[in-house]
Each structure stands twice: as C-alpha cells, then as structure tokens.
Design a protein around this nucleic acid. Structure first.
Lengths: 197, 197, 197, 197
DNA sequence: AATGAATGAGTTTTCATTCAT
DNA sequence: GATGAATGAAAACTCATTCAT
C-alpha cells in the first residue's frame, strides 16, 4: 500500500524477471543460435545479473525450452486471432500473410521455431526429447483443423505440406538472404489454398 | 601375394587423408551439428591425430565449408545420374524418390545441406558469407533447368517451391522423428509434378 | 582475537585480486618476457586460478598493457617523489641515482619499460598501437620539464638523450650481465648533468 | 662441366641454402621478433622446405644464434670499411652516420642486435648463455680501439656510452615510431665526438 | 641430403555452473 | 532471492621437432 514505488512487490518482480529472461532468450537464441549464445548474453539482454539466471532456470537447456515455448506461444496468440475470422480458408490465407509479413526477419535469422528446432535436435543426442517436435504439434493441429473444417481430403497431410512449405521457404530465404522468396512463395501458397476444394 | 594390406602406399596417403577428413566432417557435422562437434571428434572419425587436422584445414570453419561442399558434391553426383533420364519430369520425380529414399536419415538428422546451412548462417555474424546460400544454388539451378525444359511457367519459382518443400519436409520429419512424413510428402510432390503443364 | 587470518574480507578481495594480477604480470612479464610467459604463469604468481584471470582481463594483451601501465605508474611515483627536491638538476641526478640503484635488476632482466616495449612492439603487427610509445611519453615529458626549468637549450632533445642513455645502458648491462655498467654510466650521466648550463 | 645448369654442384647448393636460411632468419627474426617467428616463416622466406631446415640447424636456437652472428658480421663489414678512414674520430663519426642512415628501419623494427639481444636473453632462463653479450663485444672493442687511438681517457667507458646511446636512441625511435629521433641524436653524438680531447 | 607430412605437448580462450555473501 | 566472482573442464589452434620415404 505504501512502498509500491520504492520497493515493488517481490511476487511481481520475480515473475517479471522470469518473463524478461524468457523473452530475451527467445530473441537472442533466435538471432545468434543456441550454441553461440551464452547465458551471459541472455542475462545482459534481459538486464539481469548472470548469477541470478539460475534462480529462474536451472540449466541452459531449460532456458532454451522456455524460448521455444515462447515462440510457440506467439503462434498460439496468432492463431487465436485468426480464429476470429469466419472462414477457415481465410484463416489459413491470413496465416500465410503473417508469414510473409515477417519476411525480413526470416531472411535474416530464419524461422524462430525452425532454426531452434534444428539446434535443439542436435543437443539431445540419442535421447528422444522431442521438444522440437512439440513445438510444431500445435500449429500442425490448428492447420489440420482448418483443413478439416474446409472439408478437404487428407487434412493432416495438407497441414504438413503447409507448415513444411513455410519452413522450407524460411530456410531458403535465410540461406539466400532474400526476403522476396517469402513474398513469392507466400503468393503461391495463397493461390494453392484457393484451389483446394 | 601383395603387401597392400601391410604397407599402404604412402604416396596416396596424404590426398587420401584430406578426403577422409572431409568425408568424416560431412558425416559427423551432419549428425552432431556444427557447434557440438569438436575437431577431435572429426579427427577420431577419420582416424587422424587431432593436431594433424590443421595440416589440411587451417580452421574449423574451413572444415565446415569442406563438409558443406562435400554434401553439395553428393547432390551433383545425384543430378548427374538423373540427367541420364530422357524426360525432365521423370528426372524431378526421381529426385523426389531419392529424397524419400533417405527418409530414415532425414528423420534422424535432417537434411545435411539444410541443417548445416542453418548453423553456418549463425556462425558468420553480420558478415555475408553466404556459404549456406551457395550450397543451395546448384540444386536450385538444376531444378530450374528441368522445369524450363518442361516448358512450364515460372521455372525458378517452381524450383524454389520444390527444394523448399524438401527442406520443410526434412525439418518436420526430423523434429517429429517420423520418416513417414517424407514418404507422404514425397508422394504429394510426385503428384504435383505430374499435374504441371 | 580477530579472524582476519582465517577469513579475509571478501569485499576487498575482488579489487585486490585485480591488483595482485597486475603486479604479478608486471613482475613476471619483465623477468620472463612477454612471449615466454603464459597466463598460467601469471595466475600462479598471483595465486589466482587460471580461468579466473579472464574475469579481470579479457585477453593476454590486456594483461600486458596493464603490466606496462604498472611500470609507468612506478615511474610516476618516483618522479613525484623527486619533484619534492627543490632543484631540477638535483631531481635529474636523483633519477639517475635511482637507476643505478636498480642496477642488479637491470643487469639480470633489463629495464622493465624498455624490454616490454621491445616485445610489445612486435606483438602489434603493422598496427600502430604505440602502447610502447605511451609508456615513455610521461618520463620524457617529466625530464623535459626539468631541463626547461634549468633553462638549458633543446630541453626535449636532452630528455631523449637522457632517457635513451638509460635504455642503452640497461640493455648493455643486461646483455653483458654486468651491473657495473650501470654504475659507471650513471656516474658519467651525473657529470654530464653537472656540466649543462 | 656439363650438368651445371640442370644440377648445380651439391657442395655449393648446400652452402647456399645455409646462407639463405641465415639471411632469412636475420631479417625475419628482426622484423617479427624471435618468439613470434616460426621455423616455417624462416623456411618460407628462404625458399627452403620446412623439414629441410633441420639439416642445417638442429634447433630454433641455433638459427637464432646464426641470425645474431649474421648481424654481428654485418657490423664487422661496416667497421672494416670504416677502418680505411685515416682518423679514428672520423671513423666513429662515420659509424654514427651509418646508424642515422638506417633510421627508417630502426624506427620500424629497432636495432637488429639490440632487439634480438633482448629476446635472446629471455630465452636462456637462468643459464648464462650470453650470446647477446657476445654480439656486442666486437663492436664495443672496435669503438674502444678508436677512442684509445684518439688518446682520450676512459676509452672503454666511452665505447659503452657510444654504443649505449645507439641502443637507446634506436629503442626510443622504435617505440615512438619516429626516425627523426635518430637524426637528432646522431647529430648530438657527432658534436659530442668532436668535443672529446 | 630433401621433403611433405605427422606428432603431441602446450597455450589462449570460453563458459556453464556454482559459490559466498 | 540477488549478485559479483570463482571454477574447471573443455575446445580451437600453434609449432618445434621428428619421421618415412
């Protein structure tokens, strides 16, 4: 009631720090790659002392997983918005439009989920952690639902084709440093969605 | 009768070693990822003393680039074989079949070129090394030639769509550890190629 | 009565460690030479774990520069003391006396500033780092001030002659392992200072 | 008589290689410093295969000593020429003029003998190799002879003063990257020689 | 003697993780 | 919880020296 200005409630501060770390990890890990990013990098980006990170995340792997979850959560926010569109085909086309909207980031750093997935996969030698897989599941399920609602055949195959196309175009766009690949491939996907019956 | 087993020809050893190192690098870097693979790992896989690696490759980056080139060279070998088929459409379908044939490796480690490209991209901070881009160029050009020979519109767009689809399905197949994704997507691509006019 | 021996004050430890490292570097680099001294040598001399050195100095070069600065700072302390003498000629003669006082060290290891300067110069290939130059600037300026105050002609030329003579006699004394060279040359410089008008 | 073009006499070739290595070592070690120069550097500069170096010099130390000797031998050549001047004072003044003539090299790399001496001294830890000392002995002796012939008092002290002045001015000139220091100090030394009686 | 290649010990540097306060 | 500092196990890279022809 009285000390809110000088001493913000601990409960909130801690949660805020965790969130800041997660957001910083999501951004920095995407930009620099998992293996080339140090805990200190993330701590600095989140404006948190290095040693303090370990009160929120026991290991680097936990931070990586949190970052992956953060990206998934961004996708959830996006699909939640798209769900407000009445037509499933329009929802999918809007998803493609969102991808194209992120073309500059994709050309520079690739798809956050995709590039993280590639690296995370190598980190879990032998073991089937599959954190990378989980990251895609949700989006695949959402896309499949849309296709199903559209009444087209093989909805889960189409979902894989669509998400796969996005991963592929992001990867090529990134490797060739050419955002226009996203634009052109996005247009092609949109046309494709229109032809499905 | 011959002493080839006991006394391997010294003359060829040097060239052979470089090749052994390149091949080992291509394999191990693909399996473990660039950043998690040490020079010692590659040396061991090639049965070469660690220090000796540097006689053939001045830096780890050079080894990575050699590995990338090795993968590209594998693709060249493949497309050279496909070129013997009379019909460009058949060549492309055979390419897809080859991809599907590698589904188990893709599901376990992803596409060699693609996963290396993602990591190589993060290694060249800010700089436009584009080694990753060069790795794709040749295959894109080859695919474009086939589409052009088929007389379809937008051959380079189709080339990007095709290679992108492969990258995407490899990535998803890897993240979900599911080789069947390769099979199903391969079938879809084959059908797609058949519909092009 | 006090636990100072068992539990050294942590608060001061950090600052103290950096100073200990700098002092150790100054000594060891002088005695062994820059290139033949390892970070581990310095760490051991400072009683600091090797890895911890990098918390205070990002590279070996930074340690070398700190050592050079440390030697310069010793000279500053010396000239500050000499400044308390009323007569500039006496100050210069006292400086020479101080040099002669360090004859055994000079005969064994050379002038700290001079020998470090020689090696530092070779470390900065092509680049104009001039850390070595900066190391001499202060002493040259101080000597020049004294000559100026004495009212003699060409004070900066004389400063160079004086400091140069010290460097030369240290180098010869070291190469010939003969401290007496310092004594005799010191006497000659003193006589020379007395003749200046 | 017949194969001179295709197969030069072995006896000469070997001697030529040794000489080339010595000359290359003298130059490269001066420019880069002893510790930063590799055997391979010297071999390359002499256009000799790396492995072959060891047929002429058993260790790096031997090469360093040969380089030092080479520099001393240059000095001998110089003093032999100066000996043809009738007046010892003129000989000494001509020596100073020669030093000034090498001012650009001195400003860039320091005095060959002096900088090598500093580094060689650090290489013989504890042991009294004194190769550095021997390098100066000859020049000191020659200068002392000149002073003696001039009939001035304390000829060996003056020799040390003269050679020391050269070492000092080279070192400062190098540290400050200023060849003019050589010019000015040279002029001062010349005047000083003229005043001696 | 000649030579490219091999060797292995050593050096700088990095960093996830832990610790003391 | 918070924080700067500590730690130690790698990892990349270097190079004098040796070796097999």
């Amino acid at each position: 009631m009285t000390d809110s200005a000088d001493a913000p409630p601990r409960r909130q501060k801690a949660a805020g720090k965790r969130q800041r770390l997660t957001a910083a990890a999501a951004r920095v890990l995407h930009e620099q790659g998992v293996e080339r990013t140090t805990i200190a990098d993330i701590a600095r980006a989140a404006d948190v002392p290095t040693g303090n990170v370990y009160y929120y995340f026991k290991t680097k792997d936990e931070l990586v997983e949190a970052a992956l979850t953060e990206h998934v959560s961004h996708l959830k926010t996006l699909t939640d918005q798209l769900d407000q569109l009445p037509d499933p085909r329009e929802r999918l086309k809007a998803l493609v439009a969102a991808w194209v909207g992120g073309r500059d980031t994709a050309a520079r750093y690739g798809c956050p989920t995709g590039t993280l997935a590639v690296e995370v996969d190598k980190r879990t030698e032998g073991g089937l952690d599959l954190a990378a897989g989980r990251a895609f599941r949700q989006l695949l399920d959402w896309a499949e639902s849309q296709f199903r609602e559209m009444g087209v055949a093989d909805p889960d195959g189409l979902a894989i084709a669509l998400i796969g196309a996005y991963q592929g175009m992001s990867l090529l766009s990134n490797a060739l440093r050419d955002p226009e690949i996203m634009t052109r491939e996005g247009a092609r996907l949109t046309r494709w969605l229109d032809t499905l019956t």
